[in-house]
Design a protein around this nucleic acid. Structure first.
Length: 272
DNA sequence: TATCAGGGCCTAG
DNA sequence: CTAGGCCCTGAT
């Protein structure tokens, strides 16, 4: 199926932006995405046009939401004031990134794993979990695995999980599984709550601090008013903004600005 | 082959 | 509030 996307949209940058860790690029420019029990093969065919393959109806119902396509990032970028040259440059570099609306449970586990790991290491651990304990999905092109549910991971047991390179995060993951299975943490109920309440609820899980909770809010609940501060962003705040966080001033766009900044540091400034 | 830091969090002082 | 430890991996 051929579809048109008018707004900023860059598959490579999305894959490299560090919000998703299971996207697979292929030689011919196709990218394969997995989320919940859905899959998507997508390739740019000409400027603004994409060839997509997914389940019937899933593009409109699922993937448009996933890629946040009802929001105009072009306009958001154009509103960055000249008084903020750093973010102007960052947004220029990161043009094409979108904030992905992913599954909260998957984000919870993924971002617990992410701490003190680099992106390749996160990819490896998350994919290993999926391969071992997710459910197989036949896309017609290949066999892929859904991200394991809390129940799937409970079935894996302590010994199963111990073989997944989780290191000191293992008890954190086990805590998350227990809390979700017992109902002490109801991820569905958090949908639509104020950001502070979402984060507070998430932080009742061992191993979830402010940064990880912010990432889950942003990438799992689409709360773009969340702008999680990691070591890199923290350095930018110190070195480029005199220690004063510039992101919160962007309100509902704070998280988008944070993503531009993060991409910019990782892919542009780091080379220089 | 060895060494080090990596998209944090927890706990102790 | 600050410092160290934590388990494992990828990068030098």
């Amino acid at each position: 199926m051929r579809i048109r996307i008018d707004d900023d949209f860059d598959l490579e940058k999305i894959r490299d932006s560090g919000q998703c860790f299971r996207v697979e690029p292929f030689e011919d420019g196709t990218y394969r995405f997995i989320s919940s029990n859905q899959y998507l093969y997508i390739r740019r065919s000409s400027p603004g046009y994409y060839q997509v393959k997914c389940r019937r109806g899933a593009w409109d119902k699922f993937w448009r939401v996933y890629f946040d396509l009802d929001r105009n990032y072009h306009i958001i970028r154009s509103h960055i004031p000249a008084s903020d040259p750093f973010l102007q440059a960052a947004a220029q570099a990161g043009r094409g990134i979108r904030i992905l609306r992913q599954d909260p449970w998957e984000m919870l586990i993924t971002f617990i794993i992410s701490q003190r790991k680099n992106i390749p290491a996160i990819r490896k651990a998350v994919n290993q979990l999926a391969r071992k304990y997710g459910k197989p999905i036949d896309t017609g092109r290949e066999l892929i695995y859904s991200f394991p549910t809390a129940r799937d991971l409970a079935r894996a047991g302590h010994n199963g999980l111990a073989g997944c390179s989780l290191g000191y995060r293992l008890p954190y993951i086990e805590c998350a599984i227990d809390m979700v299975r017992s109902g002490k943490l109801d991820l569905t109920r958090l949908e639509g709550l104020p950001l502070d309440e979402i984060k507070e609820a998430l932080k009742t899980v061992q191993g979830v601090g402010d940064k990880v909770a912010g990432c889950i809010a942003l990438f799992g609940y689409g709360r773009t008013d969340a702008a999680p501060v990691d070591v890199w962003i923290s350095r930018v705040i110190k070195e480029n903004y005199g220690g004063i966080d510039p992101f919160t001033a962007y309100g509902q766009e704070a998280g988008i600005m944070q993503q531009y900044a993060f991409y910019y540091i990782q892919h542009v400034l780091r080379q220089a």
